[in-house]
Each structure stands twice: as structure tokens, then as C-alpha cells.
């Protein structure tokens, strides 16, 4: 464990040094998501909300179908 921690801290120091070194150059980032005033982020959020709502509606739909089935079975089993 101790060795792991030491290796990790060395790695961290190295990485920070590397990052500091790389600063002046052009760094590749996921700029696509931030283009045009970050509009894609809003689109992603709305898509998630819409997917969630539609998914919820699908679940509700299935639940209703199950209730209908259950009701039908219950009715047939009675004399």
C-alpha cells in the first residue's frame, strides 16, 4: 500500500510538471461542446430531460398495461 501511495504521488508530481510545461502550447480540449457560446451543452441537457420524460411515460404506459391485464385476469378467475 505504502509503495502504491508513493508511486501515485510521484506520478502526480510528474503529471503536474508535465501540465505546467505544456501550458504555453495549444492544448487539445473537447472544444466541440463549447463552440458557439456552449449551445451544445444546452442541447445535451434538453435531450436528457426529454429522454427522461419519454422514458418515464413509457414506464407509465407499461404499468397501465400490466394493471389492465391484472384486472382482466382477476375478473376471469371470479365465478
Amino acid at each position: 500500500m505504502k509503495l502504491m501511495k508513493r508511486v501515485f504521488s510521484i506520478f502526480l508530481v510528474l503529471m503536474t510538471a508535465l501540465l505546467a510545461h505544456a501550458q504555453p502550447q495549444e492544448i487539445e480540449m473537447a472544444d466541440g461542446m463549447r463552440a458557439e457560446g456552449k449551445i451544445y451543452v444546452v442541447v445535451a441537457i434538453l435531450v436528457v430531460i426529454l429522454l427522461g420524460l419519454i422514458g418515464y411515460l413509457v414506464l407509465l404506459d407499461r404499468k397501465t398495461s400490466r394493471l389492465e391485464e391484472k384486472y382482466k385476469e382477476n375478473r376471469q378467475s371470479r365465478p
Binding site: I39, L46, I54, V58
Partner: peptide
């Protein structure tokens, strides 16, 4: 009410309207 085609069409059109509507 049991069929799936128009519900999928609904989801598809709404998705398109959100993505297309912004971009």
C-alpha cells in the same frame, strides 16, 4: 393506445425539434 409506432414517432419528432430547434 397499445400500438407503438406513433409513440416512437412522437419521441423521434420531439428529439428532432430540440436538436434542430437549437442548431
Amino acid at each position: 393506445s397499445k400500438s407503438i409506432w406513433w409513440k416512437s414517432l412522437c419521441a423521434l419528432l420531439l428529439m428532432y425539434s430540440v436538436v434542430g430547434g437549437f442548431l
